[in-house]
């Protein structure tokens, strides 16, 4: 899973940081679960376990296993200090993702998040058409015309399939731009 870049100078987010962050996040999740289960009652009642019994121990196990992972990461760091690598090797070994690929990942993730936001506002169909068109133009270097044709065709297809044939209403958004279609 290590970054495949050949250049020794490649920098990025250290794997250790991400490991620690994810472990801490999991620990928080576990703690929340434990907390709420305790509120519900987490003991073994007269007729079997109460509502919070299983979630309580599940939460505990999440906490414990994330602590263990955290410990492993720390131990590995302490051990690595003893052995010396040349700087570049050490850095490559420990990289979660280099800046270059990260930028590419974000170039997909951020538009996708913006897309979901727009789904919330203007509904699935219009937002999807625009999203497909923009994705093709920006990342695929297609012409605007092609992007718009594909976006429109795909979503007209979906519209016919879901709203017209299958009668499954999809999300129309807070400001429904397609209200005049009557669906």
């Amino acid at each position: 899973m290590n970054d495949k870049d050949r250049s020794g100078e490649e920098t990025g987010i250290p794997k250790r940081t991400v490991e620690v962050a994810v472990a801490l996040l999991l620990f928080t999740c576990g703690a929340i679960v434990v907390f709420d289960s305790h509120r519900l009652g987490s003991s073994w009642g007269s007729d079997g376990p109460e509502s919070g019994y299983f979630p309580f121990y599940i939460g505990m196990l999440i906490c414990l296993s994330s602590l263990a992972t955290l410990g492993q990461v720390m131990f590995a760091q302490w051990r690595d200090r003893k052995t010396t690598f040349s700087g570049a090797v050490a850095r490559r070994r420990g990289l979660f993702v280099a800046w270059g690929p990260l930028r590419q990942v974000l170039s997909v993730l951020i538009p996708a998040l913006v897309y979901v936001l727009f789904v919330q506002l203007i509904g699935i169909y219009v937002a999807s058409a625009v999203y497909i068109a923009l994705f093709m133009v920006w990342l695929g270097k297609y012409t605007w015309l092609r992007g718009m044709v594909v976006g429109l065709c795909v979503n007209t297809g979906f519209f016919l399939m879901f709203e017209v044939w299958f009668k499954v209403p999809l999300f129309k958004g807070a400001f429904d731009p397609l209200w005049w279609l009557g669906f």
């Binding site: 519209f159 016919l160 709203e163 017209v164 400001f175 429904d176 209200w179 005049w180 279609l181 009557g182 669906f183």
Partner: peptide, 24 residues
Amino acid sequence: SVLLRRICLGAGIAGAAIVGAAIV
């Protein structure tokens, strides 16, 4: 938009006729 829809129902049908498909 429900309100709008009711007010513009006539326009809606006209629009639908233009779009042609979909509206049965």
